[in-house]
């Protein structure tokens, strides 16, 4: 009983496009990664409400970074998630619906700075060590711990830069890795939002 694309009514096409669902048969789903900043009551259980909402409603949660703001009663979450237009709009609205959320911003479309911190332990000695330190220099990393066999390096930057660094270290043998998840902040005063999810 399935209708194919040719028989979709104009109204059905509007709905599919708005949801970010593929209209042409066989077209790939339009899944985008988004960065969402949330200002949250800094109270017991507020963070778990956010995380719980993602799991209860089956949304992706790629990373969460959380910390207190200059106002000690407010903490700031940076959430990285993905989905089509319909899913993202649902995520923003469900976040807003929580009583503990004070402000929810999708910063993806805006001009924003983004950073991630990574501490990585690399196994290296002798000549290898010089090579690792050289790459570390290029990436403006810092050495935070040294033993005869292992270097612990700290690298800060946009996720792509951290990814690139981790890939370069991989051949040397990564002992351990810890990444903070992304944090992001809009550069300019907040621009007007589009009509999709305000």
């Amino acid at each position: 009983m399935n209708q194919d694309t040719l028989t979709l009514t104009p109204q059905q096409l509007i709905r599919k496009r708005a949801a970010g669902e593929p209209v042409e048969p066989g077209a790939p789903p339009q899944i985008h990664q988004r960065i969402i900043n949330v200002l949250l009551e800094n109270s017991m259980g507020a963070l778990i409400r956010v995380v719980n909402m993602f799991s209860a409603r089956g949304f992706n949660l790629d990373s969460v970074a959380v910390g207190v703001t200059d106002d000690p009663t407010i903490s700031r979450l940076c959430i990285v998630t993905s989905g089509n237009e319909r899913v993202i709009s649902q995520i923003l609205r469900q976040l807003n619906r929580l009583v503990d959320t004070i402000q929810v911003d999708d910063v993806t479309g805006a001009d924003f700075v983004e950073r991630e911190l990574c501490i990585i332990k690399v196994r290296c000695r002798g000549a290898k060590r010089a090579e690792v330190l050289q790459v570390n220099e290029i990436f403006r990393g810092r050495v935070v711990d040294v033993t005869p066999d292992v270097l612990a390096l700290e690298i800060v930057g946009p996720t792509r830069k951290v990814d690139a660094f981790v890939n370069l270290m991989r051949p040397h043998g990564i002992d351990e890795i810890a990444r903070s998840g992304r944090v992001a902040m809009q550069r300019a005063p907040q621009p007007e939002h589009g009509p999709e999810h305000d």
Binding site: Q12, R15, Q94
Partner: peptide
């Protein structure tokens, strides 16, 4: 997908998360 295939929708709703959740 097959519900009200010809209808434009005006939705008056107090809970924003219900808007465009199932039907745009």
């Amino acid at each position: 997908d097959r519900w009200a295939p010809h209808a434009a929708i005006i939705h008056i709703e107090i809970d924003k998360s219900c808007i465009s959740k199932n039907i745009y």
